[in-house]
Design a protein around this nucleic acid. Structure first.
Length: 566
RNA sequence: UGACCGAUGGUGUAACGGUAGCACAUCUGGUUUUGGUCCAGACAGCCAAGGUUCGAAUCCUUGUCGGUCAGCCA
């Protein structure tokens, strides 16, 4: 909805990426009055954050220029595709918050039209049926530095080609027996122009067209034409399709009718994230090898994984904005992704106190059996989120790491004989440490200052530390799943001599049971987001039930103490 | 030994022939009832060589490095 054209004239105009520049130029020259983009996934797997970049780019462009964006499934290879994938893709796009124009489109909707165009190319002398085997075709294609050889079947008559192509379509032939090829140039320096295959025979059941077809068009003979049918103005794809562009244009040249929208292919660099892998094949390997629990494992860079991890659509949009659109290869620091979700959750997440690694503290001068409710701020960044009441009593839990018998003055948490603040509660002083026979600390005996209620001392004395805590008898046990990066290497799939799986981080998941949570957290519903104060952001996992709440750690808070103490 | 594309701080990304800017990361301070947030500051860059020009990150040439392409995958 932001109007980029308007921004042009404003003082603090935002710089445009190269695609926006192309669009604005096209609009200015009157080449188009409205732009139409599209997101064209093949339904053969789950979407990942790289797809999210493409979705946000395409739909974002549609929105900012008051144009339209189509969702189209590129379903020309029935053997690899399934409705399971179209469903998950639909869900992911919707979750990101985008609405496609009109109905969902499918390349398979255009199979009849594509077939007609193939006939036209045959009649015009630009396509022929080739009887060679796959190996023969491959061998005669040449290499990037050596031209290929023409097929012996290249000069068949139009009539023969028509007849043979009809037989291919009719099911008279077996898989692989013949293909339809475009007649272009076997010595082209661009491999894609060396008589590319347009149709192959596949006696396979298609998830939408069923058994109607036994020949299926190739990507190159489908994509540009689908764009053309849908009047796509700007067909945006990733860099590896750069070499396909001459072919994209060649097919369009042979079917284009004057006066219609002629789509233009534009390529941008795909997203790479540090400490992970992004290819569908490798992600599938992680799932199939049980390195993760599924496509939506919170450690996966899939959209469903990020969603389960606690990422928000807003944070992914901000992330994409910060990453930018350009043509150079890149590896984005995963820290930028983490920054984006922290930024959003800092503003949006409900605060709550949870002790992950509990240490029992008894406040000896607090009356036994007494309880009180203390007001706590729900979100210091957003007053409208109000306050809640947290129960306090004689026995509480604090984090084990928040206590040391002795420590230097840089450690401003609880020490023997020193005073700290319990957030929203009281100042307490530690007087005695109780240990088991092995010397492990099992309990702390402290006293509190009744005058410091709410965490303020009337005499104005200061304490350096403020700890989170949970009242023992009011605490609920919850399970917490702490995720770390899946790989220990910045670019696990960049090593020529090593398999990416060698770099899997064995400690990418740590489960902690029996964390102590304040009662407020019992209200949580799947997907709700919280900041466990002083620790991290968490979201309630869908595996939770009434007996057991499970929280996924989305991302830790920045921790300059941890850094300093290292 | 081909074609196409690319090269700006550690990582990303701006500049459209006229002061190399922004974000993340890192490091200092300040504020703080989260060692969070916020605020202030520091660090750090045009692949190389020629050429055009009053002036080049930007235009040209050459080189270097990197990516993509030899599926009946997309």
């Amino acid at each position: 909805m932001t109007d980029k054209n308007q921004n042009d004239s404003s003082e603090n105009k935002k710089s445009l990426n190269f695609i926006e520049q192309i669009i604005e130029e096209d609009l200015k020259l009157g080449k188009h009055t409205e732009i139409i983009t599209r997101f064209p996934p093949e339904p053969n797997g789950y979407l990942h954050i790289g797809h999210a970049k493409s979705i946000i780019l395409n739909f974002g462009l549609g929105n900012s220029y008051n144009g339209k964006t189509n969702l189209r499934f590129d379903d020309t290879n029935p053997e690899k595709e399934d409705v399971e994938y179209v469903d998950s893709i639909l869900e992911d796009v919707k979750w990101l918050g985008f609405n496609w124009d009109g109905e969902v489109h499918y390349a398979s909707d255009y199979f009849d039209q594509l077939y007609e165009w193939a006939i036209k190319l045959i009649k015009d002398g630009f396509a022929y049926v080739d009887d060679q085997t796959g190996e023969e075709i491959s061998a005669s294609r040449g290499t990037p530095t050596r031209p290929g050889n023409k097929s012996p079947y290249r000069n068949r008559s139009v009539e023969d080609n028509l007849e043979l192509f009809y037989r291919m379509k009719n099911g008279d032939l077996k898989d692989g027996e013949k293909v339809l090829r475009a007649k272009i140039d076997m010595s082209s320096p661009n491999m894609h122009m060396r008589d590319p295959v347009m149709y192959r025979i596949k006696h396979a059941h298609h998830h939408r067209t069923g058994d109607k077809w036994c020949i299926y068009p190739m990507y190159d003979f489908t994509h540009g034409q689908s764009d053309y049918i849908e009047s796509i103005t700007h067909s945006i794809c990733t860099l590896e399709f750069e070499n396909h562009r001459p072919l994209y244009d060649w097919f369009l040249d042979h079917i284009y009718e004057k006066g219609r929208i002629r789509p233009r292919q534009i390529e941008f660099a795909r997203l790479n994230l540090s400490y992970t892998v992004m290819s569908k094949r490798k992600l599938a390997e992680l799932v199939e090898g049980n390195y993760v629990i599924g496509w939506d494992d919170p450690r996966m860079p899939t959209i469903s994984g990020l969603r389960r991890r606690g990422y928000t659509p807003e944070s992914l949009k901000v992330f994409t904005e910060k990453v930018g659109i350009a043509k150079r290869e890149n590896i984005i620091d995963v820290g930028l992704l983490e920054f984006s979700i922290r930024e959003h959750l800092n503003k949006a997440a409900q605060r709550v106190m949870v002790v992950l690694d509990p240490l029992k503290v008894t406040i000896t001068n607090y009356p036994e059996g007494q309880n009180e409710l203390l007001p706590a701020v729900n979100n210091p960044e957003d007053e409208t989120m109000g306050k809640r009441e947290v129960p306090f009593s004689r026995t509480i839990y604090i984090e084990k790491e928040d206590f040391k018998e002795e420590a230097n003055r840089k450690f401003f948490r609880l020490k023997l004989g020193s005073e700290v603040r319990l957030r929203y509660a009281y100042f307490i002083t530690c007087n005695e440490v109780i240990k088991d026979k092995d010397g492990n600390i099992t309990e702390l005996l402290c006293t509190y200052d009744p005058l410091s209620k709410g965490g303020k001392s009337p005499d104005g004395r200061k304490v350096k530390g403020t700890l989170h805590w949970v009242s023992a008898k009011h605490a609920s046990d919850i399970e917490v799943r702490q995720y770390d990066r899946l790989f220990n290497d910045e670019a696990p799939d960049s090593h020529k001599d090593k398999n990416f799986k060698e770099f899997i981080n064995p400690d990418s998941l740590t489960i902690i049971e029996n964390c102590k949570a304040e009662p407020f957290l019992l209200k949580a519903k799947a997907g709700d987001k919280y900041q466990f104060e002083r620790k991290a952001y968490f979201t309630l996992d869908k595996d939770s039930n009434k007996e057991k709440l499970i929280f996924n750690r989305t991302v830790t808070l920045r921790d300059s103490w941890k850094k300093q103490s290292k």
